[in-house]
Design a protein around this nucleic acid. Structure first.
Length: 493
DNA sequence: ACGGGCTTGTA
DNA sequence: ACAAGCCCG
């Protein structure tokens, strides 16, 4: 006998009672605009499940991405609470995804399993394997992106390699549909299924040290961030987004990564805002950069292993252990580069422009492989996403899809002066320079002795002298890149 | 197949 | 202007 349902559910009960397991997989931790969930509810009974697979959640894996684990666990807790408040629950299991899923499917006599697609190669492989081994149908839904990866092609049916034509094509074909509402009630779960719940693991259990400085997870927190963005920064976005010293960006990257918000909900919120924000279109363009990264990774799954530009293969990157350590710890002597490094470790977040400055410095000034920077960012970023992080690093290194030309090397002093004019960002993250006047905040090595003295800064003691000289480092990279690319060109037919 | 055009810049 | 080059219609 089925549990009692609200009036709404009675209506559904009249139809076929299809039993759908809705498998939440960490990129769709929300109730609103959730296509598998909505499809499940429309068809009958729903069993929401999350599986803590050791592939991600074994302690030795979890510590490799502690910030994201913390954010995900918080978001899963919020999801569980929201499902409980609506008469259902999030059944949490531990172990190998396929085994636990198959077991649950048998225990509940499920008719099918529904989930949101992951576009990375290993996600696709996992889904193929699950579909072929599961006794019941396995349906994956789109929704991680605005358009399904692979759906936007050039006139000749090829993948785009340059953003702007992709953006134009996107605007031509994208049709915005209203996001699905958040379900008010869900069918309840039988006691024998509720009894299978193994709960959400705690951080300690996974060997992860809690970090109080991270943004909060959960669907509600995400909506509050979206609201904050729409109330201010969205209107000033065109210029404000580049400012390191202001709250000029959306701060929605982690919400989109974990699917606390779908990109469609965010796009819709911009479109339907009472006062259309002045920076709405510019922000939507940024959302399409997110699309571009997912589409690119879909077309070229080995981007995670190799440079997009084949002529960068075999590039003579340097080891430079001392340079690497300085870059990681924020001790390069370039204030804005160091601020970015420290913000990453402390907050698990870095302003987009600061990411570019940091990436340019690591790859060009230090000549260190972009993949090392990419991996370091993946380790600490709350919003760390394979597709986007990889695109960003390859773009910065000059070897990526639509990359900046290799000879365009960011000058960290100029970037700092332009986008953090008063040095507010630097002062926050490099407090040993806090008393330096803004004239010298981005180039303390040029400050007069008396100024340094007044600011209480002794270079090489309180704060390092630059570990490389900008002009020399720039020249070294250009010479190396030029020689390497010329050689590669000579090798190719 | 020709040519306009190309996220985030520097000197 | 530029230390190039090539995407895409």
């Amino acid at each position: 006998m089925r549990a009692k349902h609200s009036a709404n559910d009675q209506i559904v009960q009249v139809g076929a009672r299809v039993r759908s397991i809705v498998w939440f997989r960490g990129k769709d931790l929300r109730l609103a605009d959730h296509q598998p969930l909505a499809a499940g509810i429309a068809a009958g009974e729903v069993l929401p499940v999350f599986i803590f697979d050791p592939y991600f959640f074994a302690p030795e894996r979890a510590v490799q991405m502690g910030h994201r684990i913390q954010f995900l666990l918080e978001s899963a807790q919020a999801l569980k609470a929201a499902l409980q408040a609506r008469g259902s629950d999030l059944i949490c299991l531990r172990g190998a995804s396929f085994d636990r899923l198959a077991e649950l499917s048998r225990a509940w006599s499920a008719d099918r399993v529904l989930a949101t697609r992951w576009s990375e190669r290993f996600g696709r492989k996992r889904d193929d394997s699950i579909a072929s081994r599961l006794q019941v149908p396995f349906h994956v839904f789109e929704g991680e992106t605005l358009m399904p990866p692979g759906d936007i092609l050039t006139a000749s049916g090829q993948a785009f390699r340059v953003f702007t034509p992709f953006w134009r094509a996107f605007q031509r074909v994208f049709e915005l549909k209203a996001p699905l509402p958040r379900p008010e009630r869900l069918p309840s779960l039988p006691p024998e299924i509720l009894a299978l719940d193994e709960g959400i693991p705690g951080l300690e259990e996974l060997g992860v040290v809690a970090n109080e400085r991270l943004i909060r997870g959960g669907e509600q927190a995400a909506w509050s961030r979206l609201d904050t963005f729409l109330r201010g920064p969205a209107d000033r976005y065109v210029k404000g987004r580049d400012r390191l010293d202001q709250e000029g960006t959306s701060r929605l990257s982690a919400d989109l990564k974990f699917g606390l918000l779908s990109p469609r909900q965010v796009w819709w919120a911009i479109e339907t805002a009472e006062a259309r924000p002045g920076g709405g279109a510019a922000f939507q363009r940024q959302l399409v950069w997110r699309e571009f990264s997912h589409h690119s990774l879909w077309h070229w799954p080995d981007l995670l292993e190799r440079p997009f530009r084949a002529d960068f293969e075999g590039f003579p990157w340097l080891e430079d252990p001392a340079g690497w350590q300085a870059w990681v710890q924020g001790q390069t002597g370039y204030p804005v580069v160091d601020a970015a490094a420290r913000q990453l470790l402390v907050e698990g977040f870095v302003h987009n422009r600061a990411r570019m400055i940091a990436a340019s410095f690591l790859t060009k000034h230090l000549g260190i492989h972009y993949q090392r920077g990419e991996a370091h960012y993946m380790r600490y970023l709350v919003d760390g996403d394979w597709a986007q992080n990889n695109l960003g690093w390859q773009w910065s290194a000059g070897c990526g899809c639509d990359a900046q030309p290799y000879f365009r090397v960011f000058n960290p002093t100029l970037q700092g002066q332009r986008f953090d004019p008063a040095g507010t960002y630097v002062r926050q993250w490099v407090p040993e320079l806090a008393r330096l006047p803004k004239r010298w905040i981005h180039e303390p090595w040029n400050a007069p002795e008396s100024v340094l003295l007044d600011a209480g800064v002794t270079l090489a003691k309180d704060y390092p002298k630059p570990i490389v000289e900008h002009r020399a480092a720039r020249a070294r990279f250009l010479a190396t890149a030029k020689a390497h690319l010329a050689q590669r060109k000579g090798l190719s037919p």
